[in-house]
Design a protein around this nucleic acid. Sequence first.
DNA 1: CATTCGTGGCG
DNA 2: TCGCCAAGAAT
Length: 365
Amino acid sequence: MNEELEKRIKKVNAKKFGEDLVGWFEEEMRDLPWRENQDPYRVWVSEIMLQQTRVDTVIPYYNRFMEQFPTVEALANAPEDQVLKAWEGLGYYSRARNLQAAVREVHETYAGIVPDNPKDISALKGVGPYTAGAILSIAYGKPEPAVDGNVMRVMSRILSIWDDIAKPSSRKIFEAGVRELIYKENPSYFNQALMELGAIVCTPTSPSCFLCPVQAHCAAFEEGTQQELPVKSKKKAAKTVELLTVIAENKKGEVLVTQRPEQGLLANMWEFPSFERNGTDTGVQMTELLSSDYHVDAMIIDEEWMVQDHIFTHLIWKMQVGRATVNQSDTALPEQTQWVSKDDIEKLAMPVSHRKIANRWKELT
DNA sequence: CATTCGTGGCG
DNA sequence: TCGCCAAGAAT
């Protein structure tokens, strides 16, 4: 740790900082479902769902998930497609698969008891430095840092840290800072308070310093630099990909759907057959690819039935959706591909763009 | 280390 | 409208 940071840390009265912060949290903490108790499994699920995801978005998913999979054993024994379906719409779907894989590991290796030490808990799939610290502190009261985006923002201001928080190496600096300042009487509340403060008071733009419980300890406030911190470099722009998507319907009123590969983007999610545009005639490309990739003989009845954009963080799909009718009934379909009825398509886990298309399809008479 | 991995909300 | 973002991890 560099000398400048060490000096900043020593300048903070750690005891009073912790008391002020935790005292504020005890008064102001929001009533959230994962704060009902400290069940490590419940804390764990909440932390996974909250990764890169807003509290308001998570709440309804969390409540449904805990009702459906209330215990380690329940989730360990659940079919994987059911877990993915429960995650539909929440994004970052590998979180769901990693969570279940890790829960099965806990079920089998640790007799259903979530590990309470850094080494074992960090070895679980989907549990990185932040989540490990969060579970250890919140569920087990261990004095471990849990450094997320909120904590980096808050601490960059408290300690006047000008390192780029977009760089992975910066996290260690903040962990070191938190280790020195963590309130050992209540590490759980201390960590949660830092995040709560970041979410409610010490916000990215125009922080509400006038109502901050630790204003007196804040280097940025003292220097008037709270608007300039944290330093965060920008990510590169998203690339656009043009896709053709086909609603291929058979005589029974069923539609062709296929499951994406188990690795990569939207892993294991179900979707309508989609192809990257190759520049040739739209209808021709739809027909030929349905034939070569899915072995179905289709007739295009509408090349541009609807359009749908799908905006990811690093990618934009511009989808042109066509409709086709398929005559042959029982040709062998490729693996991971099937016909589904309007009733059954609800049971499949689909990404938002395809779910929107599915809903529109269901409105057809 | 830089990139990949979703989604919805907000100024 | 659009860039930016939100309790990150895996590769």
